[in-house]
Amino acid sequence: MPLVYAGVCSHAPGITGRKHLVDQASLSIRDEFYKKFDEMRQQIESTRPDAMVVVAAEHFANFFMDNMPAFCMGMADFYDGPIEDEKWLGIAKTRIPGNPELSLRLIKSIMQEVDLAYAQEWKFDHGIIVPLHFLTPKYNLPVIPVNINCQGPPLTPLHRAKIFGEVLRRTFDEVPERIALIGTGGISHWPCTPDSGKINHDWDARFLNQFLNHDLKGMTSYSDEETYTEAGQGGFEIRTFITVSAAANGPGDWHYYTAELPVFAVGCTLARLMIN
């Protein structure tokens, strides 16, 4: 089975950039979260992937409102990151290997059903580099980035994120490479706004429950207005979870969540899905 791992994780820049601002009483929670992230790395490594496809929700690093694709996949030899200030993010600048030949095969196949943009140049922002920092810390696994527009409205519709996930899965099944798929984003949060640190626990619990139960109907039922009001603009990033859920076609079998690290500005979430 060419899709060997499917999971999701948070990517907030505070996770690495503001780790020193966690209050004394919460240090053990922070460290437990880091430990769980490392557990996820071990899970991924044990599936012996040839490449990691990261479905992200980047934040005006490569894509801006002058030319905003609904979906884009990288097709480069390498990717540099982080695009942000190293000190601000707490991650040193590095070069991550790609696999342009695999990208080309995937893109040609996906294009049969989805209007996918491609990019031969792509700089990783925190949306991808924070997950990689934990999940492939030696940066020795080829990565293929994917972006879904979760930032500049009009956003990619949720049901299109689901279809994209289904097409990704069909495409992965066609190639011999063993692929680990990681979605990164949300859930509810109000990053870099006056409400940074605010989280809607009930909304997170409801969405996470839908995600872990492979309830795609529930996950795609939110309007953007509703998500914005209840889950903040960070909630728009559920698109990445929906895509991974549709690709895995299975419920969760491992997860971690904590809302106790407000300086990270997100309910820190990790999950692995069963692949059916």
Binding site: R18, L21, F60, D85, Q151, G152, C192, P194, Q233
Partner: peptide, 28 residues
Amino acid sequence: YVLGVNGQLLMHYAPLFGIEWFDYLAAM
């Protein structure tokens, strides 16, 4: 912020002028 600049852009603009994280939040 009131003019509508997205925080994902603004949070990188503020540090160019030496504005730290919590001061950035307070300024908004």
